[in-house]
Simulated assay, not measured.
Amino acid sequence: MHIHNISSSNTILNKFISEIRDVNVQKDSLRFRRNIERIGEVLSYELSKELKYSVNKVETPLGTKEIDQLTNKIVLCSILRAGLPLHQGLLNYFDDAENAFISAYRNHPENGVPSEIIVEYFASPSIENKTLLLADPMLATGQSLVAVYEAIKKYGVPKELHIIVVIASKEGVDYISKHFPENTHLWIAALDETLNEKGYIIPGLGDAGDLAFGKKL
């Protein structure tokens, strides 16, 4: 797996990461969503450097200019519901992309039986031989991303696969590295050290879905 940790160098990205982590700024859900969106835009720009381009001629009012333009056929897939603000940030840059959405949640059975990831909904165009961008803001244990990928594989094999996350744990990165193809690209805005006993990233930011859209039942 090709891992791109964008936080390894100082950029304006630090401001957006700082605000989504800050418990005081988090109280403004509109700002939280907008910052996730802006992080998606930064990651889109960095990701675009790894895509394919060909020369196209553009007519201006005063002449003709040759410009390299994107040739990848992109499908942008986000995991509901937390992935929606990140999806919008990616879509702001890859505005010609086709769109897909998939649901994933952890089942919590009784009697101490280990929980599992349930994938119930997938709406997507064909992903066969296309460039799939799989977006989820938090990469904690990595189990949700692997379950989602296994579900998506039933509908086709993408030519390229890019995973886009806002905050990842080292444990989650190690886990998905063992379950995704070697040529997968992982784009991370921030990397944290550990998980707590509930599987939340520490220091992380909390529940991204709740912060963006309110608490769920």
Results as ranks from 00 to 15, higher is better:
E182W: 02
H108I: 02
L13M: 11
K57C: 05
G172N: 06
P85I: 04
D210G: 09
I12Y: 13
Y53R: 07
L186Y: 06
E59D: 13
K49D: 10
N14V: 07
R31C: 12
K198R: 14
D28I: 02
R38A: 12
I67E: 04
K159P: 00
Y53Q: 05
E46M: 08
P158T: 02
I202L: 15
L13Y: 05
F122E: 03
D136L: 07
L13Q: 05
E193N: 15
G204A: 06
A151F: 15
F16P: 05
K65G: 02
H2R: 13
D174R: 13
K159A: 13
G209S: 10
L70Y: 01
F16D: 13
D22G: 08
H179N: 15
P61N: 14
R106H: 10
V165S: 13
E98I: 03
F32M: 01
T11H: 11
D68W: 02
I17Y: 03
R38C: 06
E182F: 06
Y121D: 01
P109T: 07
E37G: 11
Q26A: 08
L205C: 04
S44Q: 08
I163D: 03
I201A: 06
Y155A: 07
N111T: 12
L145R: 05
I152G: 00
M138G: 01
V166E: 00
Q69L: 15
A97T: 04
K65D: 02
K154T: 07
T64Y: 15
F94G: 01
H4P: 02
G214W: 06
L133I: 15
H4A: 08
I3Q: 13
H162Q: 05
D207H: 03
S48R: 09
T194R: 15
S48Q: 10
G156H: 05
N99F: 01
A140I: 03
R106L: 10
D207V: 01
E46D: 14
Y155L: 06
V173A: 00
R34E: 15
K216H: 05
T194D: 14
I127F: 01
Y93T: 01
T60Q: 10
L133Q: 05
N5M: 08
G40S: 10
L186C: 06
I3R: 12
I202H: 02
I67P: 00
H4C: 09
K215W: 01
A97Y: 09
A104E: 06
I117E: 11
K57Y: 11
P109L: 11
L51R: 09
A82T: 00
E59C: 09
T194V: 13
A140N: 09
